[in-house]
Simulated scan of single mutants.
Amino acid sequence: MAQTYDAAGSGARGKYPDHPGERGAEDPIRLLGVRETPLSVDEVFAAVGDRAAGGTALFVGTVRDHDGGSDVARLGYSSHPSAEAELRRVAEKVVADHPVRALAALHRVGDLVVGDLAVVVAVSCPHRAEAFDACRKLIDDLKHEVPIWKHQTFSDGTEEWVGA
């Protein structure tokens, strides 16, 4: 069954739709950033803790050792100065479209190695399906709309920009 949420993300569902816990929080964006320092899953997870949330979805993007059939030797992320403002815009849209209790998103920039965390996002909502939907929308829109670019150098010496 499809659910419609109002502009504040406060649409309700379930047995007690008038209960405040069934709606999005008034100020659910708890943590946003584009950082040069290592990211912490624990920090992001802690930021989305909410007593009214029945579901929390977390996505962690890591640097893998290959892409497009080639071995990755090095990888770097860079961002436009507007990246954090665009990240906020994306987060606000997710909040408007889902009953978000809490939301957090961090993306790393700079030189990374295989296994490093590149992005960590999390969303908590009253119910699990809402949390999954909101988290997927957050990471998908972040990757498509926030001006952060990946520069990959492959083991054969070739390189490419992704997202530029």
Rank of each mutant, 00 (worst) to 15 (best):
M1F: 08
D6H: 14
A7H: 14
A12T: 15
G14L: 12
K15W: 15
P17M: 09
P20L: 14
P20H: 12
R23I: 03
G24M: 09
E26H: 11
I29N: 03
R30P: 00
L32T: 09
G33W: 04
G33L: 04
V34K: 02
L39G: 07
S40K: 08
D42C: 05
V44Q: 04
V44N: 01
V44W: 03
F45Q: 08
V48D: 03
D50C: 02
A53H: 01
A53D: 04
T56H: 03
A57T: 02
A57V: 02
F59R: 12
V63F: 13
H66G: 03
H66I: 10
G68T: 11
L75I: 15
Y77L: 11
Y77A: 06
S79K: 02
S79T: 09
A83H: 05
E84Y: 01
R89W: 03
R89K: 13
V90E: 08
E92S: 13
E92A: 15
V94A: 07
V94E: 08
D97R: 14
L103W: 10
L103N: 08
A104F: 06
A104Q: 00
A105W: 08
G110N: 06
G110K: 01
D111M: 01
V113I: 07
G115S: 15
A118L: 04
V121R: 00
V121I: 08
S124A: 11
S124I: 06
S124R: 07
C125E: 03
P126E: 03
H127Q: 05
H127W: 01
E130K: 00
A134C: 07
C135D: 09
D140I: 09
E145K: 10
V146M: 07
I148E: 00
W149R: 09
W149K: 07
Q152M: 01
Q152E: 15
S155P: 01
S155Y: 01
D156I: 08
D156V: 09
G157I: 05
T158M: 09
T158H: 15
E159L: 00
E160H: 09
E160S: 11
E160W: 02
W161R: 12
G163A: 08
A164N: 10
